[in-house]
Simulated assay, not measured.
Amino acid sequence: MHEWGFFPPFGFFFFLLFLGFFITNIIMWRRRRWGCSYGPDQRGGRAILERRLASGEIDVDEYKRLKAVFEED
C-alpha cells in the first residue's frame, strides 16, 4: 500500500474537477429549462422586431417597413 492510502495525490484533484463539472451541468440544465439564454438572441430578426415594437422602441410604421425587409428575403 502507498503512503497516501487509497487516495493518490491527484485523485482528490480529479474528484473536485468531476464534482465541478457535475454541478455546472446541473446549473446549465436548469437554466435551459427555465428559458435563460447563454448568448445572443437566436430567435431571429422578426422576434427582435416584435420585441422592439412591444417595448415602444419603434412605432407601427417603422415596424411595417422593417417587416417588409424580412419578407423580401
Rank of each mutant, 00 (worst) to 15 (best):
L53T: 04
M1N: 09
F6I: 09
F22K: 03
G35D: 05
Q42P: 09
F14H: 09
L66K: 12
R46F: 12
K67M: 13
I23W: 05
I58Q: 02
W4N: 14
W34I: 10
F14S: 08
L17H: 02
L49W: 13
E3G: 12
V60D: 13
G35W: 00
R52W: 13
L66W: 13
Q42W: 01
F22Y: 13
F22D: 15
R46V: 15
P9W: 01
L19N: 04
L16A: 12
E3R: 13
I26R: 05
C36I: 12
I27Y: 04
I48E: 11
R32N: 15
P8W: 04
G39L: 00
E72K: 08
V69R: 10
E62V: 15
H2P: 15
F15G: 05
A68S: 14
D59V: 03
E71H: 02
F13P: 00
D59N: 15
Y63M: 03
M28G: 00
M28Y: 03
P8R: 05
E62T: 15
G20P: 04
W29M: 09
D41P: 02
D41M: 06
L66F: 10
R31G: 13
I58C: 00
N25S: 13
E57Y: 03
P40M: 07
M1V: 06
R33C: 06
R33S: 09
R51Q: 14
W4M: 11
S37I: 02
G39S: 07
F13R: 01
R33G: 10
Y63T: 05
F21D: 12
H2S: 15
I27T: 05
I58A: 00
R33N: 10
K67Q: 11
G20Y: 08
E50C: 09
E50I: 07
R65A: 05
E57G: 00
T24N: 10
S37A: 09
Y63A: 01
F10Q: 08
D59Q: 05
W34F: 12
R65H: 03
A54R: 14
S37P: 02
F13D: 02
C36M: 10
F22H: 08
R30P: 01
I48H: 07
D73T: 01
L16K: 03
I58W: 02
S37Y: 00
G11P: 02
I23D: 04
F21K: 00
F7S: 12
R52G: 00
P8E: 14
L66C: 04
I48M: 12
P8Q: 08
K64Y: 05
F13K: 00
P8A: 11
D41V: 06
A47D: 15
I58L: 03
E57Q: 07
K64C: 02
S55P: 01
T24K: 06
M1Y: 11
K64I: 11
S37L: 01
D73I: 04
D73H: 04
F21Y: 08
Y38E: 14
D73S: 07
L49F: 11
H2I: 05
P9D: 11
F14T: 08
Y38V: 08
W34T: 12
F10M: 06
F18I: 03
E62N: 06
G44W: 01
